[in-house]
Design a protein around this nucleic acid. Structure first.
Lengths: 208, 208
DNA sequence: AGGCTATTTATACACTTGCACAACAACGCC
DNA sequence: GGCGTTGTTGTGCAAGTGTATAAATAGCCT
């Protein structure tokens, strides 16, 4: 009786990833408050003490989990911009489509984003992490917009470009939220179509 | 020594309001996890035990605080739509302007919104509360849009109207987020101007 | 096969949490 | 002014928190 639990030794990188994933799952399901070390460890299939073997403290685990979440989100979105041999306009459309469909449109991802970002007001570290991510995202948008307009032989000045980028960023973000929170109210692809049309209107492009 | 603390008996409604306000302050400052009954009570200038005299439990206090927050936000926004003797287009612009300036654009309000909405995935009660608020908001938008287009002698069908409302809603939400999270990056009134221009483009209105 | 070592478990600890409850005192009423 | 009601305080408690640390064992090296 009282036999000690069997266990396997996983590689360090694997264990850290598992713990981070378990953290994200726990936060999504129970919120930051409910994501205790014991819950997280249970989900990862280990005991609570192990967390401290890989992370200096719970706070560090949360930080890394947030970074991982943002990394995955922006990575998937930016990939759409890298398409070779496609017109700027097609790349912009692909970017929007990528952002307004699964897996970016996802209630769990949104819950996580909201939970973490809610602390940006109190946690300067988090606030700066977001700021940088946001500016990076907006700069990507601005770059494609510049290409799109150049292909139409238009020469917007810097201020005009910035305004377009802000507006387009807002359109994508806003539709993303709507899709995440009320996904079943939209047909598949509907949000992307609305987004592309709205952006073309913003840029004054004739429908294709 | 060890004298018992002096206190005053406030009216029931007043105390409940104070506790709700203290809850919102605490959540905004420390997050849901850090908003303990003791912190909340301290902020309200009472001792922790009193909370249970006015609310069945902490969970109920949080629910009421969220409801109060949403009520204040939508109330202020909708007020802009009620302007008498103004053209539909002016009312739409006023609505956008109201939503994209203080006090709606506010980091604290955003933090609260994000913190609470992050639990919508796990908490069905919260999810439904949001859904209703969102649909109400979008219906308001759709109604004004219909008026604006009617004034231009255009007859959009239901699907077109819905798409416009979704896009405009996204523009407002997206700009709201940008403003709340990076307010100092924008000139006063700049977001509202961007929003109005984007919406006019979406609706195909000629600039005034 | 047998030991070494780092990974993992298990237990303990100090502290915080939400909540229960009894004592107390502010205020209205007579 | 005294009294009763009840809003309010203070204390206590069991459950749960993050963290520290010792004991155990899985897997590699020779």
């Amino acid at each position: 009786m009282n036999a000690r639990r069997k266990f396997r030794r996983e590689g360090e990188e694997r264990r850290r990833q598992d713990l981070i994933d378990a953290t994200l799952d726990s936060v999504a399901e129970h919120g930051l408050e409910g994501a205790t070390v014991r819950i997280i460890a249970l989900r990862a299939g280990v005991t609570a003490g192990l967390i401290r073997h890989y992370f200096p403290g719970k706070e560090d685990l949360l930080q890394e989990a947030y970074a991982a979440l943002m990394g995955r989100m922006t990575e998937q979105a930016k990939a759409a911009l890298l398409m070779e041999d496609a017109s700027p306009r097609q790349r912009l459309a692909a970017f929007v489509t990528a952002n307004l469909n699964a897996p970016i449109i996802d209630q769990r991802v949104f819950s996580l984003w909201a939970t973490f970002i809610g602390r940006a007001g109190a946690d300067p570290t988090l606030a700066r992490a977001h700021r940088e991510g946001y500016l990076g995202f907006r700069n990507e948008v601005e770059a494609v917009v510049a290409e799109v307009l150049a292909a139409e032989r238009r020469k917007p000045d810097a201020s005009e470009l910035r305004h377009h980028a802000i507006a387009i960023n807002a359109i994508i973000d806003g539709l993303w939220i709507e899709g995440c929170l009320a996904g079943e109210m939209f047909e598949p692809g509907e949000l992307a179509a609305i987004g592309i049309k709205a952006i073309e209107a913003e840029l004054g492009l004739a429908p294709e």
